[in-house]
């Protein structure tokens, strides 16, 4: 007698005990037994069959009378069994899909990997957390030979896996540009062309592209419909929205982007973000931007990396994060 058979025998004994005593403890044992049988893949009809067999052995007279009705119950249970089998197959498939997405997510992370520059001129902090497994936000740093540091921050209009795949294309388009193409308007103009031609007609990308010159201590930048960043002027202790004009990438085949400039003095900061930081279903975005400023003001004494982590912790505790979250802080040393 294998263990499953022994448990069925145990079932018969429990049933007998319960019939004689109506003891609640016996019901408790019956629950444990059912749990064991389910864990060992017993189908509902198998349990009913065990019950019928036990009745037949224990109370043959009663069984004789009730047999057709018990068989009726057995037949109905067959369909429950089929449904459970279907559920188990789906569960297995879901697990396979989850594993594949996890694998794809790792591949994406290595495809999009970038090194945050460590320089004596800028203190840079970055945090990028996807809402789900794959990130539709993308940031990239380029250290130029001409004493410049380039930074790109992009967000796909759309969510999930298609959005994340789209980012790999952006990365490779950027890598394929000749090295002398460094001006933000020119990079956005070229990327717009790539996205418009190659991406699904309902998928668009917002991007902020900036280049900081160590020699001039100036940041030049352009934006393709990206969530406005913030400029902190240390001298006056004030924050200013970085206002730009420029259309999302991928809407029109040919778009020109204006270039803007900001000179940075010691302790000035540039704060770049994606709309996942400020987007909120219930409240106006304006309120979350205010909250962002509040936390940054409180964390001024910390390093750029500590600031972005502080902001993320604060937002994670208070708001339900529904979109990918990326925040970059660059402070002039």
């Amino acid at each position: 007698m294998n263990i499953k058979e022994r448990k069925k025998y145990f079932y018969k004994n429990l049933l007998k005990q319960y019939a004689q005593t109506r003891d609640e403890k016996v019901l408790g044992h019956a629950k444990k037994l059912t749990k064991f049988l389910i864990e060992n893949c017993a189908q509902p009809e198998e349990i009913v069959r065990t019950h019928i067999k036990a009745l037949e052995e224990l109370y043959p007279e009663f069984y004789k009378e009730a047999e057709p009705l018990l068989n009726f119950l057995l037949e109905t249970m067959v369909y429950y069994g089929l449904s459970i089998e279907k559920y188990k197959t789906l569960q297995k498939k879901q697990l396979e899909i989850d594993n594949e997405i996890a694998l794809a997510s790792n591949v994406q992370q290595s495809l999009l990997a970038t090194t945050i520059p460590t320089t004596s001129y800028l203190d840079i902090g970055v945090i990028s957390v996807p809402a789900n497994q794959m990130n539709g936000d993308y940031y990239h740093f380029i250290t130029g030979e001409d004493d410049t540091i380039g930074v790109a921050l992009a967000d796909v209009i759309g969510k999930g896996i298609p959005a994340a795949l789209c980012m790999s294309m952006i990365r490779y388009a950027m890598d394929s540009f000749p090295e002398n193409i460094i001006s933000p308007p020119e990079i956005l103009r070229r990327l717009n062309h790539v996205v418009e031609r190659n991406v699904d007609s309902n998928m668009f990308i917002s991007m902020f592209y900036a280049r900081y010159s160590i020699v001039n201590q100036t940041l030049v930048y352009s934006s393709a419909g990206h969530e406005p960043g913030l400029y902190y002027r240390a001298e006056t202790n004030t924050f200013h929205s970085i206002k730009t004009k420029g259309l999302l990438l991928g809407v029109l085949p040919s778009v020109e982007y204006p270039q803007y400039e900001q000179h940075l003095n010691k302790d000035d900061m540039i704060i770049l973000l994606t709309d996942g930081v400020t987007e909120c279903r219930k409240e106006h975005q304006f309120k979350k931007r205010k909250e962002l400023l509040k936390v940054i003001k409180r964390s001024m004494h910390l390093s750029a990396q500590q600031i972005v982590e502080k902001v993320y912790c604060h937002f994670e505790q208070r708001f339900d994060q529904q979109d990918d979250f990326t925040l970059i802080v660059m402070r002039k040393k």
Binding site: I157, K159, L248, V251, D275, E279
Partner: peptide, 16 residues
């Protein structure tokens, strides 16, 4: 009451 970027994508697609 609320529209996220997915909705915006649909409106751009409709405009195109």
């Amino acid at each position: 009451r609320y529209m996220d970027s997915t909705g915006l994508g649909i409106l751009i697609g409709a405009w195109k």
